[in-house]
Design a protein around this nucleic acid. Structure first.
Lengths: 131, 131, 131, 131
DNA sequence: GTGGTCTAGACCACG
DNA sequence: GTGGTCTAGACCACA
C-alpha cells in the first residue's frame, strides 16, 4: 500500500506521509475512511511505531486526518481539497525547476515534449485504472 | 555574486554549490577561470570557512572545479558539459513532479501554459542579459 | 438531548458528562429525576455502553447522580448546587485566559465588550427559552 | 525561564511550547534571537531531548521558529504577529466559557468585575515590568 | 484494540 | 557544538 525505502535520503516518516497523501488522492483512503492503525503500519512496513505516529501526527496537524483515540484515525472530509490547494502552491517551484533546466542547456522543445508526454501517459493510466 | 540564506532549510554548503554552479552556467565563472578563494568566499558571504571548503571539495569531486594547492581553484574545462549532462538526469524527477501535480487536480492545460510562459520569459531574460 | 461528536478531540465520555451536566443546569434533567438508562444513551447516541457507563460512574463520583442498582440513576438533590460550586472554581482559569489574551495584544476594551455582549445575549436567550 | 510541571495533565511538550510562546510575547525571546539549544532545554528542565525536539518541531511547523541545523533555532520575524493572530481566534472560545459560567449560576456582575480586575492587574504588572 | 506521551540511547548531517 | 531521525520499550487514557 505504501512503499518505504530505508536507503532513501528522504526520512522514513516523510515517505509515509507522502504515501498516505497519495493514497488519499487516489481514492484508496477516501475521506471519512479509517486509516490502518499505527501498529498495523508499523508491522507491515517494518518500521517503528513511533515513526508511524510521527507521520500520523503531522497529517493530523495538516488537517488531512483526524485521530480519535480508541477509535483510530480518519481521513478528514476536506483532505482532498486541502491537498489540491497545496498543489497549487507548488506551481512556482515547478517554474523554478524549469528555469534551472533551461539554464542548464535543456532545449525548450524537449521540455515541452516531456510535459506533453507525461500528461498523455497520466491520462491513459487514469482511464486504465478507472475503466 | 552568490546569495546565502542562513535561515533556509537548504544547507549553506548546498546553497553555495548551487550558486557557484549557476555562475558557471551564466559565464560569470567561465571554464579555466580562477574561483574566489575559500577565505574570500567565507568573508564576503559571512559563513564558516569549513563550510566553503566543503562546498569546494564537493564541486571538485563532481569534476566541476580543480584545486591547485597554492594557486587556488579553477573551473574545469568540461564543467559546463558536466552540468548539462547532469541536468538531463533530472528530467525524470520533473516528470514525477508533473504527475503529482496532475494527480492533485492541476489541469493539464494549466501546466502546459506554465511551462510555455516560463520558456518565453527565460528567452526574453537571456536576450536582455546578453545583448 | 446530548450531542456527541466522535471526531472531536474531546473524549466521548467527557462530552457525555458535559452534556448531562448542562441538561441538569437547564432543568431538562431536574434533581430527583431519572436519567435515561445506559442502554438508552448507548443506543440513541450510537456509542459504546462501556463509554456511557464510564460517564455515569464519573458523575456519581462527583455526587451529581446516584445509582440505584435495578432502578436506574437519579439526579441528586444537590446536583445544581454542586455544579454552581464547581463553576466558582473555574473562575481563576478564566482570569488566566484573559491575561493570556491581553498578553497577546487583544485590547482590554474589546474583551470587556465581548463579555458584556455575551451576558446580554445570554439573558435574552434565557428569557426567550423560559417565557 | 520555562516552568514544567511533570504532574500536570497537560503533556510536557505542550507546556514547553506554551512557555516558549509566552516568552516570545514577553520579549524574553525576541524575533530573530537564538533560542536555547535542545540539549540546554533538556538539561535545565530535566526532560528528555526528544521531548524538547518535539516542542521545537511543532513551533517550527507553526512558523514561530526557524531551525537551522548546526546553528540553532531562531525566533522567526513574524512570530509575534502569528501569535497575536492566533489569540484573536480564541475569542469565540472565551465567549463559550463565559456562557457556561453564566449557565452555572455565576452572576453577570461578578464576571464583569473579574475581567475588569484582571485587566487592571495586567496593566499594573506591565508598567512595573517596563518602567 | 486504538492513539498518544515519554524516556533512553544511538546515529547522522551541518557548521 | 547544533538540529533531526530512528529504534526500543514502557506507560497511559480511551472505547
Amino acid at each position: 500500500m505504501v512503499l518505504i525505502d530505508k536507503l532513501s535520503p528522504k526520512p522514513v516518516y516523510e515517505q509515509l506521509i507522502d504515501g498516505i497523501e497519495k493514497n488519499i488522492l487516489l481514492g484508496i483512503y477516501p475521506p471519512g475512511s479509517l486509516l490502518p492503525s499505527v501498529r498495523e503500519f508499523s508491522h507491515i512496513l517494518g518500521i517503528n511505531p513511533n515513526t508511524v505516529q510521527k507521520s500520523i501526527s503531522e497529517l493530523a496537524a495538516r488537517g488531512l486526518v483526524i485521530s480519535s483515540p480508541g477509535n483510530g484515525c480518519f481521513v478528514s472530509e476536506n483532505a482532498v481539497a486541502l491537498l489540491k490547494e497545496r498543489a497549487r502552491k507548488r506551481l512556482p517551484a515547478l517554474e523554478g525547476t524549469v528555469r534551472e533546466l533551461l539554464l542548464s542547456g535543456i532545449e525548450a522543445e524537449e521540455l515541452e515534449q516531456l510535459v506533453r508526454k507525461t500528461i498523455k501517459n497520466f491520462n491513459e493510466d487514469s482511464n486504465g485504472g478507472t475503466v
